[in-house]
């Protein structure tokens, strides 16, 4: 098994996910299976192959840096779980 429960805990923290004890077991097993399947890629010699991040050769798309209208603040804040005086409100960050 490539992934044990401790690795699941570590990755879950990096991804800001809370996982239960049962889920740790299940995800360790399932993620290991998927990564075992991915071992197949090592059959290929890719030493001299360039990676592809994107299928089309589009690079450096620029536009003029000019001021344009943006979304209305009230419309954007309408979805906020909590807001205060035109701002998003979050739980306390610093103790």
């Amino acid at each position: 098994m490539k992934i044990n429960k401790e690795t699941v805990e570590k990755v879950a923290h990096l991804a800001r996910l809370e996982v239960s004890e049962d889920e740790k077991e299940l995800f360790a097993h399932q993620l290991s299976d998927i990564l075992d399947h991915a071992e197949k890629l090592n059959e290929l010699d890719t030493e001299d192959i360039a990676p592809t991040a994107h299928a089309l050769p589009i690079q450096n798309v620029f536009r003029k840096d000019e001021v344009r209208a943006s979304l209305d603040r009230e419309a954007v804040l309408a979805n906020a779980p909590q807001k205060d005086e035109g701002m998003f409100k979050v739980p306390q960050i610093v103790d």
């Binding site: 990096l14 890629l41 090592n42 290929l44």
Partner: peptide
Amino acid sequence: MLGTYALSSGYYDAYYKKAQKVRT
């Protein structure tokens, strides 16, 4: 979680970069 793992330090080359090369 799979994606976070594949991008995490120490595994990036083995998984993510390798996959991008195979994509080529």
